[in-house]
Amino acid sequence: MAERTVSVTSEVGLHARPAATFVQTAAKVPFDVTIAKAGGAPVSAKSILSVLALDVRQGESIVISADGEGAEELLDELAQIASAP
C-alpha cells in the first residue's frame, strides 16, 4: 500500500471546493483510497461526507493511502490538491 503524509496549506483547509476536487480525483480509480488526520482513523477518500467530517484545517497533516495499479501517481495528484494554497 502506497502512502503520503501531506500538510494542508489552503486557508479553508480541506473543505468545500478543495474537498470536492480531492474526492472527485480519488473516485476516478477502481481501488481503495483512504484519508486520515495524522494519528486518526482512515476514512474513504471517495466520500465527500467522510472527508468533510474529518474537519481538516490549514496547517494540519493528513495521511493519504491507496492500494492498486497507479497508486503512486494518484497519491501525487491528491497530495498536490491537498497542499495547494
Rank of each mutant, 00 (worst) to 15 (best):
T21R: 06
A36N: 15
E11D: 08
A36C: 15
L14F: 11
A20R: 12
F31K: 02
V29D: 02
A26F: 08
T21E: 07
F31R: 03
A27N: 01
V29K: 08
V8G: 14
H15C: 09
Q24K: 11
G13K: 01
A16Y: 01
H15A: 10
D32A: 12
G39H: 13
R17M: 06
V8Y: 09
E11F: 04
R17H: 05
A16K: 05
T21H: 04
K28H: 03
G39W: 14
T25G: 03
T9G: 00
A26L: 06
A27P: 00
A16V: 05
V6M: 04
V23G: 12
P18S: 03
K28S: 03
A16H: 03
V23M: 09
A26Q: 05
T34A: 08
V12P: 02
E3M: 02
V12T: 11
A26R: 06
F31H: 04
D32W: 06
V6D: 05
E11K: 10
F31Q: 02
V6S: 04
P42Y: 14
K37S: 08
V23F: 10
A2W: 00
G40K: 12
A16S: 10
A36S: 15
A36V: 14
F22M: 04
S7C: 06
S10R: 00
G39E: 14
P18I: 01
V23D: 10
A19G: 01
A36M: 15
V12D: 08
P18Q: 04
F22W: 06
S7V: 13
R17S: 08
T34W: 07
T21K: 10
D32M: 09
A36K: 15
S7K: 13
K28Q: 07
A20M: 12
H15D: 11
R4L: 06
P18A: 06
I35L: 15
L14R: 10
E3D: 02
P30K: 12
A38M: 14
A41K: 15
A27H: 00
K37P: 07
P30G: 12
P30L: 13
A20H: 09
P42C: 13
L14D: 12
G39P: 13
S7E: 11
A38K: 15
A16R: 05
R17D: 05
T25Q: 07
A2H: 00
V33Y: 10
V23R: 11
